[in-house]
Write a protein that binds this DNA or RNA. Structure first.
Lengths: 344, 344
DNA sequence: TAGTTCGCTGCAAACGTTTGCTTAGCCAGA
DNA sequence: TCTGGCTAAGCAAACGTTTGCAGCGAACTA
């Protein structure tokens, strides 16, 4: 039923190899023959079978793209950009969702390995050792993680966290908190590290809260914890948690930014649609997707030199941050039990 | 370098066909041999090459999933659900984005055709004729469109539009508008039809505005048009446009729902995060994704009987709708020039 | 005119599997 | 002892391509 190269060959009176060459090495075939073959191929509706081609060339012209959670608004722009970039280079992309599960991640890479020319591993949750091991089965580019010897695209979130904490302290906040993301996340470690270091350098007090799932729900649930901490300014692992936090605070009648300042990370589309508009650290996700695809598709020689690229982040100040309140006690709802004392 | 079935055969002292059968028809091989083969395969790190298998079986165990815009928040939950369902059935899925372009859609289906066992076409923009034609190249399930003879999963948006208009008229709105989506969209036509019919049946006045791109930006831009129309209640093609409209109205200091009521469609996560919380018609997108995959993977015999499934929608009343204002003139900003007269 | 190069095409092997057919060995029944 | 049936395994063709090699005229070189 499906029309093959052989059908085209028969119909145009040439050998299959000539048909093959018409598509894969046109300059090797007589222009006259070429047009004849092309037109019969066209009229027969012939489409090359990429799997068969892959079998012999070893190149599938497919890519794998593995993310923690497709529905997390951070990823779609990245997926879209990566897919678009890949398709421009005549590649198709498998997209898979791990549900934040490191084991699933690993299985997926292995399952995809034989079927793709490379895998984009976005915000992986698995250990570095596992990544290095998988690297031997299939070319890999990791996004949002730095692993020795593995090509990677990362955002300079440390710089972003620094800017965020500086922003808060500059507004007079002396006690800030970092609402942490999931355990396996490199970004989470970076943020935590940079936030802590910056706070210390500025003589401010920083509390780390978490870890948490990087979801809005987790943010809602963390509101209580944040209030208890006594912090007047919060940096969160991502915008989703920040937005959840905003909701949780709203439910408790805590005013943002009057009583509490909140900063997210990522600058997802949502963050400027909610009220108050979220102050956040913008990460160039689309650019990351494109860059990662480019790295994966680069000839081997170049790959070493461009092994790791860092994209700049930028603090976007909107309406969820403001001057520190005078008396922090006011920022707590009556029901909240204060824990620990606040250093002013 | 990559380990093949032949390596396993050699290492375990059997013929390749025995190794093959160990994986694809275990009951045909002696339990003893089987375990031996399995363990050497394991230790060599053998992974079957699905492309090679596909070449001979004709089944790739891959699916294609084509959407208009990955970054449109309507789609990620659908993609996630479809991918998850597919993987449970040992299928991988290609995800592709058409940028709302009917031509790209067609090219994609054709490019994917040979590489997949079926394609999910979500919210297609191309004509029915084209869909029927593509149907001959590859099994197809269409989501959000009803095409004669093509398996489909649709949401009962007509019912949703009816409920929405009834809700508005019930609140006293006599002049309502439908802010239309893109031209090729079946959902758009359904909504328009149902909204018009319902309004007529209730003796209300309905204005159709559009078509528009189904984006937030388009919604912002349509604010002026909506105000000019004189309508006091608006149903939009999707939540994204509704949210944009809300923004545009906010910029013009028009109060929602006091001066204007807005209803979206889809109930994307965003719609309960913005203020006012959006009244909207919830569509079961995840369920649609799962259902579509199930249909695609069903044995041929059953497919005819379950050719088209319709999923129920539900009006979710939140804060963006309220009683019609007394004097509609008040709902217009000073700068807006009234066009047409309002029948009260 | 003979030899060499060149452009184009055909031939056939190969890629990693699956699968219908055949074979080998064994056991039961007669 | 022979026949028949069964289980387990091997053999080889096939899937749709690509590609190194060889062949063959024609054109160029000497």
């Amino acid at each position: 039923m499906p029309v093959t190269i052989r059908d085209v060959a028969r119909a145009s009176g040439v050998h299959v190899s000539t048909v093959s060459r018409t598509f894969s090495a046109p300059h090797l075939v007589n222009p006259e023959t070429r047009t004849r073959v092309l037109s019969t191929a066209e009229s027969l509706g012939y489409r090359p079978n990429r799997a068969a081609r892959a079998l012999i060339t070893g190149r599938t012209h497919n890519l794998g793209l593995i993310v923690a959670d497709i529905a997390n608004p951070f990823f779609p722009p990245l997926i879209k950009a990566a897919e678009s970039q890949a398709r421009q280079r005549d590649y198709h992309v498998f997209v898979a969702d791990t549900n934040e599960d490191a084991l699933v991640e690993e299985e997926l890479v292995q399952a995809l390995a034989k079927q793709v020319d490379g895998v984009l591993l976005c915000s992986p949750r698995m250990s570095n050792d596992h990544i290095e091991q998988l690297r031997r089965e299939v070319p890999l580019v990791v996004v949002n993680r730095l692993v020795e010897g593995i090509p990677a695209v990362v955002m300079d979130v440390a710089q972003g966290a620094k800017a965020a904490i500086e922003h808060l302290v500059g507004l007079g906040h002396r006690h800030v908190a970092y609402l942490a993301g999931p355990r396996g996340s490199w970004t989470n470690r970076e943020l935590r590290r940079a936030a802590t270091a910056t706070a210390r350098a500025l003589g401010a007090n920083l509390t780390v809260l978490g870890p948490h799932q990087p979801t809005e729900t987790a943010g809602v649930g963390a509101a209580e914890q944040v209030l208890r901490s006594g912090a007047t300014g919060v940096l969160t692992y991502n915008d989703l948690m920040a937005i959840g936090l905003l909701e949780g605070l709203h439910d408790r009648a805590v005013k943002v930014p009057e009583q509490l300042s909140v900063i997210g990370i990522d600058d997802i589309a949502l963050s400027r649609l909610i009220r108050p508009k979220l102050t956040t650290v913008a990460t160039p996700t689309a650019a990351a997707g494109r860059a990662a695809v480019d790295m994966l598709l680069q000839p081997d020689d170049d790959r070493r030199t461009t092994a790791q690229v860092t994209l700049q982040t930028e603090l976007v100040v909107r309406d969820s941050t403001g001057p520190a309140p005078r008396r922090t006690a006011a920022s707590r709802p009556p029901s909240a039990t204060p824990v620990g004392s606040l250093k002013e």
